[in-house]
Design a protein around this nucleic acid. Structure first.
Lengths: 238, 238
DNA sequence: CGTCTAGTTGAATTCCGTCAAAGCGGGTGG
DNA sequence: CCACCCGCTTTGACGGAATTCAACTAGACG
């Protein structure tokens, strides 16, 4: 259980690939050192759970590498994905009681974890960090609200079109299999897409083949999507 | 257009009814005075718009009295309510570009507004205020995510049952027409409930009469709800 | 070459939205 | 005081979109 945890060696921040984008980006060398000493790097395998839904919030983390999902389930087992965490995103619930959602790695991932108590203390003493965290949380809230409109008011076609456009943007900006910016790897199964959009796997599949047959997209392989007619896709997104 | 704006007189915080619950609650007298000097009280009529969707974020506010909705619309005019703001809640998007949702008063309301630039500056200089704002934003994010599960994965009956239970809780804790805690005033039209739950007005109506006929609730008047069988309602909520 | 999982396709069903009409209640003016 | 009107709500009939259940297919991997 400890095999995938590396003790904070005092140097890992220097090598951190998301250092300039994560909430730590405004810290001085000394502050970074202090934060370093309370954090640990941890590797996660795809499918591994970092935080369980409803658990008392004992840890928070920065995503260094990979994709993670935040999700919650109904009592009868249907799942809704509440957000996707990308590298440099922050995870967990500081200053809070329990985490009302689970966090699980979608791909192999690397995170920089902190005991919540340690992090809370550190944050309170470092307003610039708190400020970064606040900005990030506000942005996340905006994002989440946008998603609510999708869930509440769009039909399956609109949901999928919006999703593909957003995925394409994310893919090109973070360089995932970017190619020419129109072809990209989804990194998500049909089931996961369905869980994001509040649909079933069959509906997702049907909509994708429909879009393919209409020449809006191509599906060269299971998880690869090529956008052939972006503006038509935008028309359907709303 | 100015008739409903009162200049900051230097004393209104003292009389503020939400002073101990709003984000200002940790400030010293001096700090409160300073904040006071950049804020203005404003009264809103039910239906009046405080912030327009997509506008550049020029103001932020504390709710002093009344209820407001945050909402967004699809291009074909269907609306989704993204959140309800209660007294002591914070409104608007500090440190940001545009507000991606509109804010409108549901009841007559009173808010304490700030120019965003003034507020941003003040906040940056007062970490305790930022901390409060952060805690509030995190709580709001949790709330919003819970709502996403409802929108994405619950059916009409489950949505309505969840909504009524939550409304009952809110009503009793904030003392709205609390009565014995089971009977309360909704303050929302059927259309607004539909916009919250991602349903149509007819579906909301049908579900309510169904619950009434099953003895779960009573509907003594248009906007009053009495919960007769809470546990049965909880069973249906998920 | 067989097995296993993820994805696709099809048919039946159900739930919710749409359209239309009727009911209710509160306010206004005769 | 009553008749009328207006907006909100309820109710009904219908259709369509998405889910459900089930069979089938395509790759991946040993």
């Amino acid at each position: 259980m400890d095999g995938n945890i590396t003790a904070g060696s005092g140097t890992f921040c220097d090598a951190c690939t998301v250092r300039n984008r994560a909430i730590c980006s405004d810290l001085t060398r000394d502050e970074l050192g202090a934060l370093n000493s309370i954090g640990r790097q941890r590797k996660l395998r795809a499918g591994e759970q970092l935080i369980w839904e409803g658990d008392e919030a004992v840890l928070v983390a920065n995503v260094v590498e990979g994709l993670l999902k935040l999700s919650s389930s109904t009592s009868d087992g249907r799942e809704q994905i509440l957000g996707i965490a990308f590298p440099a995103d922050f995870l967990g619930r500081p200053f809070g009681g329990s985490t009302p959602y689970g966090v699980e790695a979608l791909t192999d991932a690397q995170v920089c974890v902190f005991q919540r108590k340690d992090f809370d203390r550190f944050a309170k003493e470092h307003p610039r960090l708190e400020h970064k965290l606040l900005e990030r949380t506000l942005a996340e809230l905006d994002q989440t609200r946008k998603w609510m409109l999708l869930l509440g008011r769009l039909n399956a076609e609109q949901k999928l079109a919006s999703f593909l456009l957003q995925a394409a943007d994310r893919a090109s900006e973070s360089g995932f299999f970017a190619g020419d910016g129109t072809s990209f790897d989804l990194q998500l199964s049909r089931q996961q897409i369905a869980d994001i959009l509040g649909l079933t796997i069959e509906t997702v599949s049907r909509q994708m083949t429909k879009m393919k047959s209409q020449g809006l997209i191509d599906l060269p392989s299971r998880r690869t999507v090529t956008i052939l007619d972006r503006s038509a896709l935008e028309d359907r997104a709303e």
